[in-house]
Each structure stands twice: as C-alpha cells, then as structure tokens.
C-alpha cells in the first residue's frame, strides 16, 4: 500500500517535505514503518525516540496500519 506520512517539527527537515509517501505491505505494523523510515532517513533514528500517531492516537510498535489511516511522525521538541 502507499502510505502518506505527515511530518511535524524537525521531521519536516529530515524528510525535506511536510509529507512523504512510503510503500508498505497492507496491515504492516508500526515497527515495520519505523524501520523503513529510519533506513531511508537515518537522522530519524538518531533522535532516539519520536512518536508515530495513527488517526490521532499514539501507535505502539505492534499496531498494524492500513491504507486509509492518517499517519503522522511527531519528533520531540525542546524549545521554551
């Protein structure tokens, strides 16, 4: 399936765009998506952690994703 991934914060810089499209097997889990993204964008892995939100819910590694889902990558933010 083609999945559109929304980027927040520093993820926009890492992806070089406010959203990117990735190819993933239908029903793949969040861990698989993270591995794929981290391979394509090694800086993402260097953050140490970031949130994957699916349909505005925090996605655990084992949650599966389908084509209709809205997926967002939300990295940590430090500024104050």
């Amino acid at each position: 399936m083609e999945l559109n991934i929304l980027a927040f914060g520093i993820a926009k810089d890492i992806f070089g765009a406010p959203s990117v499209i990735v190819n993933l097997d239908e029903g793949a889990d969040t861990a698989t998506l993270k591995t794929l993204l981290e391979t394509q964008y090694p800086r993402l892995k260097q953050l140490a952690s970031y949130m994957v939100a699916v349909n505005n819910e925090y996605a655990q590694d084992e949650n599966s994703i389908s084509e209709r889902d809205e997926v967002a990558i939300i990295p940590p933010v430090s500024g104050g």
Binding site: R43, Q46, L47, S49, Y50, M51, P75, P76, V77, G80
Partner: peptide, 20 residues
C-alpha cells in the same frame, strides 16, 4: 517518557538554531 522515552539532544535543534 510515555511520549518520548529518551532523546538525543544533539540531534534536535533548539530555538536559537531553528528560530521561533
């Protein structure tokens, strides 16, 4: 830590770099 268990602070720019 539920949101972000840990962070590599050298990889996330602060406001003086990226602005706010």
């Amino acid at each position: 830590r539920d949101l972000y268990p840990q962070v590599n602070a050298t990889q996330v720019p602060n406001c003086s770099v990226g602005g706010v």
